[in-house]
Amino acid sequence: MKINILAFGIAKDIFGSPEVTIDLANDATVSNLKYLLEHQYPRLNHLATYMVAVNNEYALDGDNIHERDEIAIIPPVSGG
């Protein structure tokens, strides 16, 4: 399945775009997505940490990703 990934902050710089599309297996997890992204965009590994949000909620590595979910890469936040 093709999944659109939203990127913010430094993740947007790393992807070179506010949104990228990635091809995932139908039963993919957040962990699978991170593995693929880190392979494709090695600079992700240099971040202090980063989270994945699924449908506007922080997701765990074992959570499943479904087609049409809204996926976003959340690098370390620094608001306030």
Partner: peptide
């Protein structure tokens, strides 16, 4: 509220 906002709210500052 301010302490937690700085830890969890997806806002970024450059």
């Amino acid at each position: 509220i301010i302490d937690t906002l700085k830890q969890t709210v997806p806002i970024w500052k450059k």
